[in-house]
Amino acid sequence: MTNILGFYQDIGLALTVLVLSTFLLAGTVKGVIGLGLPTVSMGLLGLAMAPAQAAALLIVPATVTNFWQLAAGGHLRGLVTRLWPMVLMIFGGTLVGSLWVGIDGGPWVVRALGGALLTYALVGLFLPAFKIPAHRERWAGPACGVITGVVTAATGVFVIPAVPYLQALGLSRDELVQALGLSFTVSTLALACGLFWHGELGGGAMGASLLTLLPALAGMALGQWLRQRISALVFKRVFFTGMALLGAVLLTMG
C-alpha cells in the first residue's frame, strides 16, 4: 500500500486527480469503441509528466483490459496462426526500439507522441477503407509489426500502423476486436520489458499503475453502457477530432 500511495503523495493532489480522471476517460473510450486506452492516457498525461512515467502508469490497466479483449471471441488460434509474423515483429521492434532510443530519450519524445496521435486521428477521420490482399500479408504484416514496435518504444502509443493494417484484413467484427486485443497485449508486454530495462518500472511504478486499474475498469463499464445509447460513428468523430487537437498541442511542446 505504501508503494501505491507513495507515488501519488509525491506528485500531489492535482496531478493525482488528472491521472485518475484520465484513466476513467480512457477506459470509457475503450468501452465504447474497443480501443483508445493507451492513446488517451499517453496523450493527456503527456501534457503534465514525462512520457516514460505516463507509460509506466498504463501497464497494469492496459494489460488487464487487453487480456480481457483477447480472451473473448473464440478466434484466437486462427488469429495467432495468421498474425504471428506481425505479432513477433511488434515484440521485437518494441524491444529493439527501447534499447535504441527508449521512451525517455529527450524532449523530442513529446513531439513524437504528438505526431503519433495526430497521424492516428487523421487516419481515423479521413483514410478510406481499403483491403490488403492475402498474398501481401507475408511481407506487409512483419513490416507493420516492426514500425508499430518502434513507434510503441518511442511514444507508448501502439495503434499506428497496427490498427489500420488489421482493419484492412477483412476480418469479421469479432475477429477484429480479438485481433486488436492480441496486438495490444503483445505491445503492452514488450513496452513493459523496455520500461523495466530502463529502470522505469520498479515496484513503486507498478503499484501506482495498479491503482489506475480501478478508474479504467469503471470507465470501460461506463463506455459499454454508453455504446448502447449513442451513435458509435458520432463518438468516433468526436474522439478522433479530440486526438488530433491533442496531438497538435503536443507537437508544439518539448
Score class of each variant (00 low, 15 high):
M1T: 13
T2G: 11
N3R: 11
D10M: 11
G12H: 09
G12V: 10
A14I: 11
V17F: 12
V17L: 15
L20V: 06
L25D: 06
A26W: 00
T28A: 09
T28W: 09
G36W: 03
L37Q: 03
P38C: 07
S41H: 00
L47Q: 13
A48T: 12
M49I: 07
A50S: 13
P51Q: 02
P51V: 03
Q53W: 06
A56Q: 09
P61V: 05
A62Y: 00
T63Q: 06
W68L: 12
Q69C: 05
Q69R: 08
L70H: 01
L70W: 10
L70D: 01
A72T: 12
H75R: 06
L76R: 12
R77L: 12
R77P: 08
G78E: 13
L79T: 01
M86S: 11
M86C: 13
I90E: 03
V96M: 09
V96R: 01
V96N: 00
V96T: 14
L99Y: 14
L99E: 14
W100V: 08
V101L: 15
G102S: 11
I103P: 08
G105K: 07
G105S: 14
P107G: 11
P107D: 11
W108D: 15
V110G: 03
A112H: 10
L113T: 12
G115H: 07
L118Q: 02
L122V: 15
L127Y: 12
P128W: 12
P128V: 13
P128G: 12
H135K: 13
R136I: 02
R136E: 12
E137K: 03
E137P: 00
R138Q: 10
R138Y: 07
P142M: 08
G145I: 05
G145W: 01
G145Q: 08
T148P: 04
T148V: 04
G149R: 02
G149K: 00
G149M: 04
V150R: 03
V151F: 01
V151R: 02
T152V: 07
T152D: 06
A154W: 03
A154R: 00
T155M: 01
T155H: 00
G156Q: 07
V157P: 05
F158W: 13
V159T: 14
V159L: 13
I160E: 07
P161Y: 11
P161R: 11
A162R: 01
R173M: 11
D174E: 15
L176M: 13
Q178S: 06
G181A: 00
S187T: 07
T188K: 01
A190T: 09
L191K: 02
L191A: 15
A192I: 05
A192F: 05
A192L: 06
G194S: 11
L195W: 05
L195A: 04
W197P: 09
W197V: 14
G202V: 05
G204P: 00
G207H: 05
G207M: 00
S209V: 03
L211C: 02
T212G: 01
L214Y: 01
P215N: 05
L217C: 10
G219P: 06
G219N: 02
A221F: 15
L222R: 01
R227M: 10
Q228H: 14
S231P: 09
A232K: 14
F235H: 06
K236F: 03
K236L: 08
K236M: 10
V238D: 07
F239P: 04
F239H: 04
G247K: 03
A248Q: 07
V249M: 14
V249A: 15
L251D: 10
G254M: 07
